[in-house]
Design a protein around this nucleic acid. Structure first.
Lengths: 198, 198
DNA sequence: CAATAAATATGACATCAATCATATAAAATG
DNA sequence: CATTTTATATGATTGATGTCATATTTATTG
């Protein structure tokens, strides 16, 4: 949980319901709100000319998203689209910044968040530049396992489809499927009835 | 310029000279200092098993580097190596954090910096995932032009070698050279005596 | 639980960038 | 300014991943 919901509400935040497939904000447009996911699932993606999506992040309940423009005053770097019926809460930019000013420890929580996100991008870029499907997937899953993101905690079941992994790494579904099958064979992960455990 | 040198010195920072090729800090090791480049040139890189380098950032005078561990308490995400004889200034982590606490506007300057860095990674990842050499290079140069990084301001000469561009995108030198030749032919950039203008 | 949809699986083939080799041009050095 | 080093250039070949087609398994829905 990034910012406490009651705090957000006290500062004038409002809930908003979005249905599956609904675009919450669009890449390149200007931003006036800080967003946080209350329930549901949101993908944070770039769409290229051919309509192919690159998934920057899968936003889970409690996660903040679209916060970059709050800090650097640039447009959204990617679009946020609801994967399923979701509830979001949003706070106006001016209130958000004022809240940070008055709550230094919250400000530090955000520098920590930005830093962690940046770190993830460092790792991913390094891996993708290597052009080794198995290593890229392995590194991605390992990161999710460590941060308990996109993983069912307890059984370590990967909550991502092969397509989503492909869309996060710039590979094709077939390549991801084939690579993960090989990884299953070599023992570096387990596939049971199509479901992946790591 | 990230933090004013006099401020850094007042807070107990110390200069350090490093010679060409010297490793300032190593990926994976723990960090106790905030770093800023005074003069020279530093590359911020990941080295893979084969010794191939992926350049995360080319650090220019005035830039801060290795600041992520200050905020998220994780090890260095990449190594910093001096490209040439350089002078750096470093401030102890505890002093750095205290300085931020006492100077909220500086703290906001850092969230802005982190946000801008994250934004750059978003863009680069999106492009690299597209697997289109010309678009990747074009997007990279465009970003450098906008932010006036790695570009001689005025004449717009790219200060990066083809090898460096290759090392920032995960492509091979030959591919970068061939692609940029094509871009010269198609008019999207200009090459004169090997030097690139955009 | 039958029917439909979505995800995974797998083969065949094509393609673009990697690799390797070598040449030439530009920059650095004594 | 001659020599060495570094960067750019370009051809030939290879190989991994993309593409396309189709089958099968798993999940979803009425």
């Amino acid at each position: 949980m990034m910012i406490d919901i009651n705090t957000l509400l006290a500062w004038g935040a409002a809930y908003k319901k979005v249905s599956a497939g609904e675009i919450i904000f669009k890449e390149g447009t200007c931003s006036s709100f800080y967003f946080q996911l209350v329930s549901g699932l949101v993908r944070w993606v770039n769409t290229n000319e051919d309509g192919k999506e690159f998934i920057q992040t899968i936003v889970e309940p409690g996660d903040s998203f679209g916060e970059m423009p709050m800090f650097d005053d640039e447009p959204f770097a990617a679009s946020a689209i609801a994967n399923e019926h979701s509830v979001i809460i949003r706070l106006h930019k001016s209130s958000f910044l004022q809240l940070l000013k008055e709550t230094p420890e919250l400000h530090f929580a955000f520098t920590r968040l930005l830093s962690q996100r940046l770190r993830f991008k460092f790792i991913l870029l390094k891996e993708l530049a290597n052009h080794n499907p198995e290593q890229s997937i392995s590194s991605l899953l390992n990161y999710f396992k460590q941060t308990q993101k996109n993983i069912s905690i307890g059984c370590n079941q990967v909550k991502l489809t092969r397509q989503q992994i492909a869309d996060m790494t710039g590979m094709r579904v077939e390549t991801v499927i084939r690579t993960m099958r090989n990884m299953h064979t070599s023992g570096s992960l387990k596939i049971n009835k199509g479901k992946v455990y790591c």
